[in-house]
Amino acid sequence: MFLPMLKRRLIPCLFLQNGLIVRSQEFTQFKQLGNPTAQLERLNDWDADELVYVDITRDGAYDLKRDDLKTASRSDVLSILRDISRHCFMPLSFGGRIRDLETVDAFIANGADKVVINTGVVLNPDLITQVAEKYGSQAMVVAMDVKREADGSYACYSHNGRERLAKPLREWLAEVQQRGAGEIFLNSIDRDGTANGYDLDIVNRVCEWADVPVIACGGAGVFEDFAEVLAKTPASAIAAGNIFNFTENAYRRAKKFLRDAGANVR
């Protein structure tokens, strides 16, 4: 694959739960970090290449829509998106609980440039084609949550890491690309929230098999972890969540670190 000149992206990934930003650890523990609207100015200061929001609210929680439980409805998430797009001038991706084209329409109409979907396309792979045909492949990011199995192979999971896909990873990857996926968001369940560094082995395997850009996610603990992905894999982008949330100016400092290390970043 011939990939000249393009900047390699560093993407903050923000997890929304019941309308609040949370941190995630191994897909099971969540800690609230605050109100997304209050974070807007900070996000602009970061000058990020792109933002990915993932709504990890469990399905049932929305349907209750009870104020006393402080659950946000879908319309609240869309209003968060509208707020963000009024203030942030960068590519915005939204994912989480997207099951049909109508929901994709709503996200894009409210300011998202791309949607990120895992379970929705596992349940209905044709959704990939529908989104790609309507908005172009660049708007259709397929998320693959992967986990290393006891035998050393990797499997894909849907439903927030609860359901294992019967199809081998490589076969599923080929299928989503053939259906029109424009990018792969590769998240390591084992590394999620651990700060132990990226799983370079799976990043390299997927990059080798993929014809579309791969975003590597899961495991960033120190800036050296980013540099390692850029130096040792051909991933087009690196995404991370927690590392940007805990220390001041982490995003800008990470970018400077990568530039100083000679990486082709913006």
Binding site: F2, L6, K7, P213
Partner: peptide, 14 residues
């Protein structure tokens, strides 16, 4: 139309 070039061109560029 450069041979082998990935199209579309998506991303940040100088």
């Amino acid at each position: 139309n450069a041979p082998g070039l990935r199209v579309p061109h998506i991303g940040w560029n100088d």
